[in-house]
Design a protein around this nucleic acid. Structure first.
Lengths: 345, 345
DNA sequence: CTGAAAGCGCTAACAG
DNA sequence: CTGTTAGCGCTTTCAG
């Protein structure tokens, strides 16, 4: 019944453990642990001995054990809506993820991809609240992030893109670009080019980026005393842009200016315009959002808003880590956008 | 020195533990553990009591503890080359990842994104060999997967895309499409259309997909007694396709057939052809690879090879899990491709 | 079928 | 600065 004689424990088979290292270095496990965790309270000699032993043994700490003992997992979940088909195809999200992952790769945190099942939302909720991660990065796709906004009271959480709020809790921490301001700015370029009958192909109404760009569009027209009634929605895909363009022209053939909420949709819209024999910018000024391949290689190249998606991802990771480590962070972080004038307005 | 009186342990604060559940259900921890792990050796009564307690407490097992005790992590690493900029932008990889993640989401495995740093390759090697994951999914990007091929002897590993081999070890397990056969097939369409001076814009020489498609192209021409000397390489991006097209036309203006190894490159090539007043398929037959937006919406829509990237990802996950669970799996799995004839040849 | 006991590998006070 | 002593929460023989 005593806890004696721990000598006869595990034979030095398998992967080396902290204990193996301690033995080889001639110190206690605590000291090895201190070295691993970079504690300053270790004599140079001990440190050298331990490091040598670690090197020699090719020792790698066991994360599970560490996390069990320290009650920190060093893991961060990246929550992705199940509706992934469009999600991954969307270069916006792909790039944000990339930025977030690259940033985390510089730290000791690990990124766990969590696909939020729509049929069993409990599964991911349990995972997140079950202490399996130290925090979560959430890419708001559709506006069904209600539950995640709630989650952010129990776990450090950072959103990518302004999450929609459905109650009066505290504002969740998020990183976004100022879609409203940027949309207004690029739209006003249309106005200063003398366009008067200005329409927009807006994003989906269940994504805040779509809503915000539409709001910016309307703001700009309002300020100029123009009517913002020519609005058709797409889902950010080229196909939806083409369809919206058709609807717009059906409603009013005299359109002479157009703000398309994404370059991919603009590509679709352009194909319709071309088919109708309308040329940009001669017959109609066209500005858009995103400086991707579509905006750059369109005929003509399009005046657009450039946003740094990777920077959004990096910032999300940075904020989350600070949050996990107990720091105060701003609830709202707006990343800069840049207007690229290619004279297509 | 005795191990007695464990009663006065942790107050029932914080998250419920297995012990809490056991107490509430009136059984031992072992029984709760059995229930959680779906052991059949539990009486219906015990099972019910435990499940009720779990429900009531909102109990979630602690993965770290479980993994420490069971020596299995239930985690799978997805290894991605650091050169991520292009990686994530590439819809091929994005979709494979998606497929792999979706498949895993149906299981109890968790996906950890591991960015393989080029400056510190040891970091990911240590992580992988340190017992932090049960297996790894590796998306071969460039041909620097030497170390990962070696890794596959110490850890269950499945590659996406044929990995290049640099030694004579066993063939690693991989999932791919038969790039060679598909490229040969689509190229032969060009031949049967009567094209005789056939060129190719090949992929990069450091990616097996690029090499294999080039090999298929050459095979088809050889079989028809045609020369396969008109080869220029791109990096799968539209820009590189345009540049390669320029070089090709400089070398030989009489080209009447062209196989482009990716639809994105084909898009670039088409812009060059258009600029030169050459029309497809009138002046020149054009076939490509990938049935994405570029192939579908090109002018004209292109005859191409459709591959199901998500299926590749799913299959990778499936094989890896079987490998982890000790099953034998085929070393090579070829996913089907489909020829889509749009009469652009 | 169930419980007791003994750790998995590591961290974290607490003495020394 | 270093070693000792207890566990972190769960699985797993091994008796019963």
């Amino acid at each position: 019944m005593t806890t004696e004689a721990p000598e006869s424990r595990s034979a030095p088979a398998g992967t080396p453990t902290l204990e193996t290292v301690a033995a080889l270095a001639g110190v206690s496990r605590s000291t090895v642990s201190r070295v691993i965790n970079g504690s300053p309270k270790v004599t140079p000699e001990a440190l050298a001995a331990v490091n040598k032993a670690i090197e020699q043994l090719g020792y790698v700490p066991n994360l599970a054990a560490r996390s069990l003992a320290s009650r920190r997992t060093q893991a961060i979940a990246l929550v992705i809506p199940e509706n992934t088909a469009r999600f991954f195809a969307d270069p916006y999200f792909a790039t944000v993820i990339q930025g977030a992952a690259m940033k985390l790769a510089e730290t000791d945190y690990t990124l766990t991809l969590l696909i939020a099942s729509e049929t069993d939302p409990e599964k991911s909720r349990r995972y997140l609240q079950g202490g399996n991660v130290d925090g979560a990065l959430i890419l708001s796709h559709h506006s069904d992030d209600r539950s995640y906004v709630a989650l952010s009271r129990k776990l450090p959480v950072v959103f990518g893109g302004r999450p929609e709020r459905h109650d009066d809790g505290p504002v969740p921490v998020y990183v976004d670009v100022d879609n409203t301001a940027a949309a207004a700015e690029v739209t006003s370029l249309l106005i200063s080019s003398g366009r008067r009958r200005i329409a927009t192909i807006a994003g989906p109404t269940d994504m805040t980026a779509g809503l915000d760009r539409l709001a910016g569009f309307a703001q700009a027209l309002d300020a100029a005393g123009l009517s913002a009634d020519l609005v058709e929605h797409g889902d950010f895909s080229p196909e939806s842009g083409a369809a919206a363009m058709d609807r717009l022209l059906e409603r009013d053939e005299s359109i002479d200016g157009l703000f398309v909420a994404s370059a991919q949709m603009a590509d679709g819209a352009l194909s319709v315009l071309r088919a109708r024999g309308l040329s940009v910018p001669k017959d109609l000024g066209l500005v858009t959002f995103d400086d991707d391949y579509f905006a750059q290689r369109a005929t003509p190249p399009l005046t657009t808003v450039d946003q740094d998606e990777a920077a959004v991802g990096r910032k999300m990771s940075e904020l989350l880590i600070r949050l996990i480590e107990g720091e105060e962070v701003p609830r709202v972080t707006m990343m800069p956008t840049r207007l690229i004038d290619r004279r297509s307005q």
